[in-house]
């Protein structure tokens, strides 16, 4: 572990801000679940860095279902999120995304805030968050602001957050009747793997099964989660027949600029993006029909 420096675990957003002010000018890192950050610190990153642990602040830890929105704390653990039956009914795909992250042990710690701000192109929690069209409450020295989730990640390991800023919570709309989402990822092993490709589909269908709204977001094929708008375009106003879904998959398999790395070749990622897009749309469509 690199040389030590301060650590704080404030019990309120304001207390957090005073700590941030006290360390301004010095390097600061936000500690949510820590399942990425601690590995990076052990590898020598972020020496002499102040740590702000946000796991003791009500707003960042709670999951609240309100009449017209859902609020998920940025530091709420995946195990809490997956145990929330109401949330799983409203956003099955969103919960599937974070449920994929790591093992049971990782689920006890991993958070949406950490997963998003670590900004890995293959992050499992991010596609469904973006596909849900959610926003996030950003807290920092210059006060609070609300931004669409899709604007946070700007590249591998990079976010749009300023110095001393952190995400306190995610705000998602209550899905309209006939809406549902789904998330699938592909990994060689059944568990404990980084996504070769991940696909979130979030769509609405009317009474006779025609798609009225669609959002498809694909992870691990571009520097950040890719909003596949032309896949969505191919679905809207269409009955979600196998032919249409195959066409959507075909489009998806041409998108992005996937890398060839130790987890897969770019050609393979293209193919799998197509396969998973078809499967995710099919699952989301079936769920949406039942959600009338």
């Amino acid at each position: 572990m690199p040389s030590a420096s301060t650590y704080s675990r404030p019990s309120s957003l304001d207390e957090a801000l005073t700590f941030i002010q006290s360390t301004s000018g010095k390097a600061l890192k936000i500690l949510a679940g820590g399942t990425d950050l601690l590995i990076q610190m052990r590898a020598g990153l972020y020496p002499d860095t102040a740590l702000l642990d946000i796991k003791n602040i009500p707003e960042t830890m709670s999951i609240t279902i309100e009449p017209n929105q859902v609020r998920i704390g940025a530091a709420a653990a995946a195990s809490e999120i997956c145990a929330n039956i109401q949330l799983r009914q409203l956003y099955p795909g969103l919960v599937e995304g974070i449920e994929y992250i790591g093992s049971t042990q990782i689920q006890s710690r991993a958070t949406f805030g950490g997963n998003l701000c670590n900004a890995s192109p293959a992050a499992d929690g991010v596609p469904a968050l973006i596909a849900a069209g959610g926003t996030c409450l950003i807290v920092g020295p210059e006060g609070r602001r609300i931004n669409p989730i899709s604007t946070i990640c700007t590249g591998p390991g990079e976010t749009a957050l300023g110095q001393g800023e952190f995400i306190a919570e995610f705000i998602l709309p209550i899905p309209k009747p006939g809406s549902a989402d789904a998330y699938l990822r592909f990994t060689p092993r059944n568990e404990m793997d980084i996504a070769v490709v991940g696909v979130a589909a979030n769509l609405s269908v009317d009474a006779d099964g025609t798609c009225t709204r669609a959002q498809v977001v694909i992870g691990a094929i571009a520097p950040t989660a890719l909003v596949a708008s032309d896949v969505a375009a191919c679905l809207v106003d269409q009955p979600l027949t196998p032919k249409i879904i195959d066409k959507a998959g075909e489009i998806a398999s041409q998108l992005g600029s996937p890398l060839t790395d130790k987890r897969g070749t770019s050609e393979y990622r293209h193919q799998i993006a197509g396969v998973l897009t078809k499967r995710a749309i099919k699952i989301a469509a079936e769920r949406a029909k039942k959600a009338h």
Binding site: R189, N190, M192, K262, R263
Partner: peptide, 9 residues
Amino acid sequence: LDYRMPVAL
């Protein structure tokens, strides 16, 4: 993580 030995599942 990346030297993939079989897991229980």
